[in-house]
Simulated scan of single mutants.
Amino acid sequence: MANSQVNSGNPRVDLDYRRKKSSEEMRYQVISFALMIFLTLLAFAAVAIKGFTTWFTVPFIILLAIVQVVFQLYYFMHMKHKGHEASSLFLYSGLLIGLLTILAFSTIIWW
């Protein structure tokens, strides 16, 4: 399990602790979901508004996408919990290799 459960010997205390932790976790997920919906609406608004140029809109949408990926990883996929170190290592290693590959191909094409 990702969450270590406290065992005090008193079932009532343990149940209250688990309920408190579960409600706290659910609150974080609801807030994160609401923020992701807001960021999605912001991205749609950036495209819909004709006053913004492409030079602003594309990096802005990419920035919003990166923020949403962070929310997805840390709140919905529970990467902030203990016990996910190995999967975090593989995920970030793959991200580093992917970014280095994009950088390498970009420099090959541009120079």
Rank of each mutant, 00 (worst) to 15 (best):
M1G: 11
M1S: 05
A2Q: 14
A2Y: 13
N3K: 15
S4A: 10
S8K: 03
N10P: 00
N10A: 10
P11A: 10
D16S: 13
D16I: 14
Y17M: 15
R19G: 07
R19M: 11
R19T: 10
K20A: 14
K21R: 11
E24T: 03
M26W: 13
R27I: 14
A34Q: 06
I37Y: 02
F38I: 03
F38H: 06
T40G: 01
L41D: 05
L41Y: 01
A43T: 00
A45M: 07
A45E: 01
A45I: 00
A46S: 10
V47Y: 03
I49W: 02
G51N: 14
G51E: 12
G51V: 14
G51F: 10
T53Q: 09
T53N: 07
T53Y: 03
F56K: 03
F56E: 02
V58W: 04
I61T: 02
I61R: 04
I62F: 06
L63M: 08
A65Q: 12
I66Q: 10
V70Y: 03
V70I: 15
V70F: 11
F71E: 01
Q72W: 10
Q72I: 13
Q72C: 12
Y74F: 12
Y75F: 13
Y75R: 05
Y75D: 09
F76E: 04
M77Q: 12
M77L: 08
M77A: 05
M77F: 11
M77V: 07
H78T: 10
H78E: 14
M79S: 02
M79D: 09
K80Y: 07
K80G: 08
G83L: 00
H84P: 07
H84Y: 07
E85T: 01
S87E: 14
F90T: 01
F90G: 11
L91E: 00
L91Y: 08
L91P: 10
Y92E: 08
S93T: 14
S93M: 03
S93C: 04
G94E: 03
L95N: 09
L95H: 00
L95P: 10
G98N: 03
L99Y: 11
L99F: 08
I102V: 15
L103C: 13
F105I: 07
F105D: 03
T107P: 13
T107I: 15
I108H: 13
W111S: 08
W111K: 07
